[in-house]
Write a protein that binds this DNA or RNA. Structure first.
Length: 428
RNA sequence: GUGGGCGUAGCCUAGUGGUUAAGGCGCCAGGUUGUGGCCCUGGAGAUCGAGGGUUCGAAUCCCUCCGCUCACCCCA
């Protein structure tokens, strides 16, 4: 235990965690599936800075949202600039799109990222102060077919991971021209029942009536079931967009359900919003992926009017679900060979041989503590190697080494200069 | 930000007021003067999350803080 002074010991900051080697099999698996699906759909990787000008997030996510109001890690640097550790991935990608003139590329521009996300929240299962998201953004095309493609890609990603029993929730929250009328009617409706709503929802009534819809309080749910539905208030363009999207989803055999109370916590969404969560789990932190269209955001950030849609998934939550569903992930490959040595002359030979084998593309494990052969073979055993090379005085003198098959327990002498050749044939 | 549960070596667990805090896994070493997986023996490793208080005496009771966890809130 690391103890620095009385009463204090270093540990990872609250809500963060070390991802240890034993966990990395999941992370490697997820990232491999992520880059594979991106290759299939033609998405290219983009990396953006971990921190950005604070105003980028305040303007894109929305000043009135919980994320901006109380969850951002915002600080001043030594020159007085206000910076924020990114609380989501989309704003940075849009900023980069504008900054680098990506509107001159063939549209839509398809990008993906895999990045750490920071929010000051009270940690619990599936919710952290630093977590990781894999996300995709398709910028520069307003066709509902693109919505369908992004949703299909997200769905297929989970299928490829081996996750089962997921449900896809879909809704449309309209655009700037039709949403105000919808919000008015929501306000009117809930105002009639104001006294029956929970305190939080009374507050939401004036500020953000959309959020009342997904209140989980038993007292509020019955009202939300009879509340005006956004899809009934869509303008002609939004209604047609939603209609065509549904047809494409059916065409692609995607088992979606329209959820009229699905709203998102970020203000930039327009038209299509969707969420993917394990069936039957309503808890907010059960959602493993979510996304939607944000047709006004790029213009809002100083670019030309550019429709776009994106999707993001929380990697920690994926790991959680992979474990919960006991999905078998491929184990990390072990070393090909362990080299054990006895005595200082043999140690020289061992080091040279290790270097030579590694240059030949073979992964080598060995330990340098001049330990007993028994101890070294014990370690070879727990390392899981198929073969061990044993070098002692006899081998140094004869110029050959003992090659031991760890499964069979058989061994034979091999000339030193043939070891690489023999091992490459023998080891998978 | 609110409320509940929890915190004993790297991991899991016993111990709920009384002499050097017990065991399992793992680690290290020996049993084999050059041979792993099983077995046996030994060793290292814990200021019992931290700080303060009650008491002759605290891992055990009380307070505060930190962390984990669950439910809210919200989000991936």
């Amino acid at each position: 235990m690391l103890r620095v002074e009385e009463g204090f010991l270093y540990q990872a900051p609250r809500g963060t965690s070390d991802i240890l080697p034993g966990e990395q099999v999941y992370w490697g698996y997820i990232r491999q599936k992520a880059s594979a699906i991106c290759a299939l759909y033609g998405y290219q990787r983009i990396d953006t800075p971990t921190f950005e000008d604070a105003r980028l997030f305040e303007r894109s996510i929305g000043e009135e949202t919980d994320i901006v109001e109380k969850e951002m890690y915002t600080f001043e640097d030594r020159s007085g600039d206000r910076l924020t550790l990114r609380p989501e991935g989309t704003a940075s990608v849009c900023r980069a799109y504008v900054e680098h003139g990506m509107h001159t590329l063939p549209q839509p521009v398809r990008l993906y990222y895999d990045a750490a996300i920071f929010r000051y929240e009270r940690p619990q299962a599936g919710r952290y102060r630093q977590h990781h998201q894999f996300g995709v953004e398709a910028l520069g095309d307003g066709d509902p077919a693109l919505d369908a493609e992004v949703i299909e890609m997200a769905w297929q990603f989970y299928v490829n991971l081996g996750l089962r029993g997921l449900s896809l929730n879909l809704n449309s929250i309209g655009c700037n021209s039709c949403r105000p009328a919808y919000l008015d009617s929501l306000r009117d409706y809930y105002s009639q029942h104001r006294e029956s709503l929970c305190p939080d929802c009374k507050r939401r009534l004036s500020r953000n009536p959309l959020r009342i819809l997904d209140c989980k309080k038993p007292s509020c749910i019955p009202f939300s079931e009879r509340a005006p539905r956004s899809i009934d208030y869509l303008c002609r363009e939004c209604a047609e967009h939603f209609d065509r999207l549904e047809r494409y989803l059916v065409l692609l055999n995607l088992p979606y359900v329209v959820n009229h109370s699905l709203v998102r916590g970020l203000d930039y969404y327009t038209k299509t919003v969707f969420e993917i969560a394990p069936e039957g789990e309503i808890a907010a932190q059960a959602t493993i992926g979510a996304g939607g269209r944000y047709d006004d955001l790029i213009e809002q950030l100083g670019g030309k009017p550019t429709p776009a849609i994106g999707f993001a998934t929380g990697i920690e939550r994926l790991v959680r679900n992979l474990k919960k569903q006991k999905v078998a992930v491929p184990a990390n490959p072990s070393h090909a060979v362990f080299i054990a040595y006895l005595g200082q002359d043999a140690k020289d030979v061992a080091m040279k041989l290790a270097s030579h084998l590694r240059n030949s593309g073979l992964s080598v494990a060995l330990t340098f503590g001049d330990r007993s052969l028994k101890a070294q073979l014990k370690q070879a055993n727990s390392t899981g190697v198929q073969r061990a090379v044993i070098i002692g005085d006899d081998e140094v003198r004869s110029g050959a080494v003992m090659l031991r098959d760890m499964d069979k327990g058989e061994q034979e002498m091999i000339p030193l200069d043939k070891v690489a050749e023999v091992l490459s044939q023998v080891v998978a």
